[in-house]
């Protein structure tokens, strides 16, 4: 792409120019320094929480909210700080909500990208562009507001039956703030990013490739599915990574909509399990940001942030690996 990366022979060099290069390079390195700082700072701050619990930190056991309460109320003497934390319900809720919404969003975005590229009438194509831009631009707090004022009461009063409420009465109260509402709103939030990237990628698949498939007697849908989508795989992976990162980090909307109880929804409850509340890591951090100044509590919260930081960094790395392994027979993802 860039033809200017290497210096050409004709190019004059002087002092000012070299100074500018160093200055701009330093600016760029500042980003790396910042990231290093971020990782070191957050981990150093989070370390006591991890060190005190060991691997049990990631395990299940006890009530997370009670544990957090105990940490918050720990004695003032540093040697008596309480750190006991078994964060499994939060980790599980994060994985559950993120996973389901990314799967849903992938399906919807692939279908709508195929629709936009191949099947949509011109007016629908024109309509969908601003629609997707709009859906991507709506702030998460607005999604959260609609979720908590419209969807949550609707699900609480009309969708979740009394029988379902009764069936888990001794464990958890169902009031509409649920995994399901969280997943639905989150899917709406991340789908547009994926649609935009996938559509771009499908458009840039050379026409001759899909035409070649069509010439073999395959219909339009199958040509797109077998050739177009396959050629666009790196971009689809990139879109998935971006969407997952957004879903992982979504704090405000989920803290409004999916309930602020550190509860691990039990799949054994059947469909009801989707109606049970759950709180993700990011939502936990936002909900408890007031307590950061209490030392052991703050360290626990930073431990949650450290997990988020690691997962999002790992995610970009995994996306990069997946893309480069697919690069051989597919379009280049930018």
């Amino acid at each position: 792409m860039s033809t200017s990366g290497s210096p050409s022979a004709a190019q004059p060099r002087n002092r000012t120019d070299q100074r500018a290069e160093v200055l701009l390079g330093a600016l760029a390195c500042a980003v790396l320094v910042l990231i290093a700082f971020m990782i070191v700072f957050v981990f150093v701050k989070a370390w006591p929480s991890f060190a005190d619990n060991g691997l049990a930190w990631f395990g299940a056991g006890g009530n997370v909210d009670e544990q957090m309460q105990n940490i918050f109320n720990s004695p003032a003497d540093p040697s008596d700080y309480v750190y006991t934390m078994h964060a499994w319900p939060l980790l599980y809720a994060t994985a559950l909500i993120t996973g389901i919404s990314v799967l849903l969003a992938t399906a919807i975005s692939l279908l709508s990208a195929i629709f936009i590229v191949e099947f949509a009438p011109v007016f629908m194509q024109r309509l969908l562009r601003p629609v997707i831009r709009l859906l991507a631009a709506v702030p998460s707090v607005v999604y959260g507001l609609i979720g908590i004022l419209v969807l949550v009461p609707f699900f609480g009063n009309h969708v979740i039956s009394d029988g379902e409420k009764e069936s888990v009465r001794y464990v958890i109260q169902l009031d509409g703030t649920s995994v399901l509402v969280g997943v639905l709103v989150l899917t709406v939030m991340i789908t547009p990013i994926m649609v935009a990237i996938t559509t771009d990628a499908l458009r840039s698949v050379p026409r001759t490739w899909t035409e070649g498939a069509a010439a073999l007697g395959v219909n339009r849908f199958r040509a797109l599915r077998t050739v177009g989508i396959r050629a666009a795989r790196p971009a689809i992976v990139a879109a998935g990574v971006l969407a997952t990162a957004r879903a992982l980090g979504e704090a405000i909307m989920l803290s409004m909509v999916s309930g602020s109880v550190g509860f691990a929804p039990n799949p054994l409850d059947g469909v009801t399990f989707l109606f049970e509340p759950a709180r993700t890591l990011a939502a936990t951090v936002v909900d408890n940001s007031e307590g950061l100044s209490v030392k052991p509590f703050g360290q626990t919260i930073y431990a949650f942030a450290a997990i988020l930081l690691i997962s999002s960094a790992f995610l970009s790395f995994a996306g990069w690996v997946a893309r480069s392994s697919m690069r051989k027979y597919t379009l280049q993802a930018r």
Binding site: G249, A282, S316
Partner: peptide
Amino acid sequence: SGVEIVAGTPSIVLAIFGLLV
């Protein structure tokens, strides 16, 4: 990739990192 990581970092993590700094 650094810029990519900044883009992928949840804003809540940036926020409490900022508080720390």
